[in-house]
Amino acid sequence: MKKSSLLTGLAALAALISLSSCGKKDDNTLYLFNWTYYTPDSVLQDFEKEYNCKVKVDTFDSNEVMYAKLKAGADGYDITFPSQDYTSIMIKQGMLKKIDHAAFTNASNINPKVLEKLTFDPNMDYSVPYYMGAAGICVNKQKVHNYGKSWTIFEREDLKGHMTMMDDMREVMGDALALKGYSVNTVDRKVLGNITDYINQKWKPNLVKFDAEGFGKSFANEDFWVCQGYAEVVYGEVPEERQEEMIDFFIPSEGGPMYVDSMVILKNAKHYDLAMKFINFIHRPEEYVKFLDEFRFPGFVNPAAEHLRTTTPMYKAEEMETCELKLDVGEDLETFNEYWESIRFSAD
């Protein structure tokens, strides 16, 4: 489930040349191309049993890897799970089949508030939301006291040397944009320049580093006291018996970037009917709740499942209502990258 956009040259090359050989015949097998550890085995087993089929899963760890592999010619997959910006790109490029709404009888379980955010496909013509989430701030409440639930916590010089933010330009710059009252998808160069100055002057001097991978372990070891990132990364490292006393995770009131991962059926899918059955199956509340309980995610996408859960989510779904989807900004992504380089490599 890691959303890292940092790919090594070898990984990128492997993605381009490693083509799937699955799905060469109609073998009553559904082929998924999914984020790592993103669908509980119990759900897959339930589906196999009910429909007397097999489900095979290949995994990816970033949208970039998924997209590159498909564009390189891998055509054996039926369903993949892109985030909103790549869903939008794949729709525009004609890479997807339409959703059969006659077969999607559980469509009513999808939260209308999620669909309102999906301006590129609000009627689920090509995509069905799987999960909506957002990064926020984890605070070690045993070490840090009297703090506001705001992105301005990174301005605190008394916490210098104990804070980190993700190595992700759209997340960090999006946080600053939201704090200053702008859209996280702003591409105006003057605004981005001002945001860059703010980050360099007010946030970066207090950070240990930008870290998209290891901050969970460092938080658990109490090296980092304040981390911007995904809750599951920290909760996954802190022992369960210490979580309540140690972790305060929140999404600041100013909002920030968010994401929606969706299920889409690929243009060359060989098992379309089975794929539609799977999409419909996932959104049965009694199945979707298994996903929520296993990962302790909030059930904003499927409220009916949220009511069935037996675990406490890592954060409240309502906290995301002030967040905004990171959308595909096209060629302006290079503008973000230009300013991000001046943040990543500027002197403190």
Rank of each mutant, 00 (worst) to 15 (best):
K69A: 04
N111Y: 05
E244W: 04
Y272A: 02
L333K: 08
I195S: 03
R344C: 13
A178S: 15
G256M: 07
G9W: 03
K190M: 11
D197S: 15
V233M: 05
T186M: 10
M276Q: 15
N109I: 01
A134D: 04
N268R: 13
N194W: 06
Y86P: 00
Y31A: 08
A135G: 14
I265G: 00
Y67V: 12
T312G: 00
L207V: 06
L19M: 11
L13H: 12
D100H: 10
G299L: 11
A14M: 08
V144C: 09
P122E: 15
E287P: 02
N206H: 01
L7H: 07
G236H: 10
D223N: 07
H283K: 04
L192P: 05
W151K: 06
K180F: 10
P285L: 04
Y230S: 10
K98S: 10
D168K: 03
L325E: 02
G94T: 07
D58M: 14
M166V: 14
E331P: 03
G216S: 14
T311K: 12
L70W: 12
E338G: 05
N200D: 07
V289Q: 07
R309G: 06
L159I: 04
E237I: 05
P40H: 13
T39M: 14
K217Q: 15
H162V: 11
F210R: 12
A68L: 15
T322G: 11
I265V: 15
S108K: 15
G256N: 06
E318R: 11
S108Q: 06
G216N: 09
F345M: 11
I247G: 09
A74T: 15
N111W: 03
K316C: 04
A103C: 10
N34L: 13
D328N: 14
Y86A: 06
T105R: 11
T164D: 05
M1D: 04
E171G: 09
V184T: 06
D85G: 02
W340S: 02
A231K: 03
G174R: 00
K277F: 12
V184G: 07
F249H: 01
V184M: 09
K71W: 00
P129H: 01
C323Q: 07
M166I: 14
I279R: 13
D158C: 08
Y130A: 10
E287F: 11
A317R: 01
A178R: 09
N63T: 10
V55W: 01
M169V: 09
E334D: 09
K117I: 08
G133M: 02
E287H: 07
E232G: 10
I251N: 00
I343M: 09
I79S: 08
V144W: 01
V187Y: 05
A15M: 00
S20I: 01
M132G: 04
F104H: 01
Y37W: 06
P129L: 07
S183P: 05
V65T: 07
S20V: 00
E50M: 13
